[in-house]
């Protein structure tokens, strides 16, 4: 096997993070963009591979112009592995924004990821698809024999109110003791506006609730990556 086929080399190292869920509209792109830019603003070199047909991350990347944050568009099943290899050589973090639905594109990306974040709203269809995604991560891990760390994260959470059904779904999932971020992605207008302005909350007001929300998620993600770095 040659390094070009994916062999680990001494001088190449970085974290590959995938945002995955069989369900669409759960916040994969939002988290990918927010975490990617947050890390870039802190000095990490970040590349986001946009695998979603909708290419919303790419559109944001064209507006944003944040130093150290690059979005690679039009990643598909045929070019995902080579794109990952290219990104691995010159970044601290590679984020993969995967499309909804089950696809071999996602399965390829999962096998090359160190950590998979599975966004999930507190509704049964979201949870059902998130659990399915976790099962696919398990299958990918079993076949590739490489540990793929993963965690669910609650998304689009309303501040100050939780419906009866949302609480029921959340408590049912938490009872299964799946890895779960304690930070949640809130439902905030700032996360919609970034696609219009090309600016993330940290750039507009670092003390805003949106910026603090992103900071909390990024902190938890980095804590998980630190465990991986220590174990490596």
């Amino acid at each position: 096997m040659t390094p070009s086929q994916g062999e680990a080399t001494e001088d190449v190292g970085m974290a590959v993070l995938a945002l995955a869920s069989a369900k669409g509209g759960v916040g994969k792109t939002t988290i990918a963009v927010l975490v990617g830019t947050e890390l870039a603003l802190e000095g990490y070199k970040v590349t986001l591979l946009d695998c979603d047909l909708n290419q919303h991350a790419t559109a944001f990347g064209e507006k944003a112009g944040i130093r150290g944050f690059t979005v690679v568009p039009s990643i598909d099943e045929a070019n995902v592995l080579s794109a990952l290899r290219r990104a691995e050589t010159d970044n601290d973090v590679v984020l993969i924004d995967l499309p909804g639905g089950s696809s071999t594109l996602a399965l390829k990306a999962l096998q090359r990821s160190h950590f998979v974040l599975v966004p999930c709203q507190a509704s049964l269809p979201d949870v059902r698809d998130a659990i399915k995604t976790v099962a696919q991560i398990d299958d990918a891990q079993d076949l590739s024999r490489v540990k793929i760390a993963r965690s669910l994260i609650w998304t689009r959470v309303l501040s100050g109110y939780e419906s009866r059904s949302a609480r029921h779904v959340r408590e049912s999932v938490e009872a299964k003791r799946l890895p779960m971020f304690s930070a949640q992605l809130k439902e905030l207008a700032a996360f919609r506006e970034l696609h219009i302005t090309g600016q993330v909350p940290q750039q507009i007001d670092a003390k805003s609730s949106a910026a603090l929300n992103v900071s909390a998620i990024t902190t938890e993600l980095l804590a998980n990556l630190e465990k991986l770095a220590v174990a490596a």
């Binding site: 973090v93 096998q111 090359r112 490489v146 770095a229 490596a232």
Partner: peptide, 16 residues
């Protein structure tokens, strides 16, 4: 964090 400590997956493209 020194994320360079995390190495890429060693799986080859064919197996993936």
């Amino acid at each position: 964090l020194d994320l360079k400590a995390i190495k890429p997956s060693a799986a080859d493209d064919e197996s993936v």
